[in-house]
Design a protein around this nucleic acid. Structure first.
Length: 200
DNA sequence: TACTGGATTCACT
DNA sequence: GTGAATCCAGTAA
């Protein structure tokens, strides 16, 4: 397999990054486009991996942290291909990838199907019910051990994302869920597959 | 400095 | 279906 080389200056290691990893420029696209294309991609972190089965796109709308730029959300305006991890409800983390070069935007990873490191996920989640390991934004962060330590990091460092499985267009659904904020509909926002490991 | 509420989850009824 | 858990970013004063 063809490889790229990446040097890790802190530890003087050479890491091998396969060619199917999304490069930084790929994340310059609009968040809605990326949210759709990320379905079927694989995330890897902490010796665990999972296939993305549900995403949610955020742009400059009232329900988005990007709508009002604050020190916390500034990363969505200033970067793409970076991780935006925030803490919510006092106990959960949510994982986003910044998008939209030159504008504000991000994609929330809402659910994945566990692929590797399942026993570690079971331990962190304190359950052996496969369906409950990563079927929600808070659940998947818990299963992977994702915390705010990852906030601001560029993708394909410790946290990697790569092409994995091609999801047929016919299997991709756009949810008609109601947007949380201000009671407005954002039907373009949610992308799901028919995979059972999606949020309730 | 104090207060409010949230891109969630889970236990309980 | 409902409500509690729980921390912290954001805001008002």
């Amino acid at each position: 397999m063809q490889m790229l080389f990446r040097t890790d200056m802190m530890h003087f290691r050479i890491l091998f990054i396969p060619m199917n990893f999304f490069d930084k420029s790929w994340f310059e696209q609009d968040s809605v486009e990326i949210a759709r294309k990320l379905l079927g991609a694989k995330i890897e972190y902490n010796n665990c991996s999972g296939m993305i089965v549900e995403t949610e796109a955020y742009r400059d709308d009232p329900a988005s942290h990007a709508h009002r730029i604050t020190p916390r959300s500034r990363i969505m305006l200033e970067t793409h291909a970076h991780l935006y991890v925030y803490f919510i409800y006092g106990m959960y983390h949510c994982l986003n990838i910044t998008t939209n070069k030159g504008s504000r935007g991000a994609v929330l990873i809402r659910a994945v199907e566990p692929v590797e490191g399942i026993s570690a996920m079971e331990e962190r989640r304190k359950t052996k019910i496969f369906r409950n390991l990563t079927s929600g934004p808070g659940k998947l962060c818990s299963a992977f051990g994702i915390t705010r330590e990852l906030n601001g990091k560029e993708v394909n460092g410790d946290f990697r994302i790569s092409q994995f499985k091609k999801i047929p267009e016919s299997e991709i659904g756009v949810s008609s869920r109601i947007g949380i904020s201000e009671g407005k509909d954002f039907p373009w926002r949610f992308f799901i597959t028919g995979n059972p490991c999606v949020s309730r």
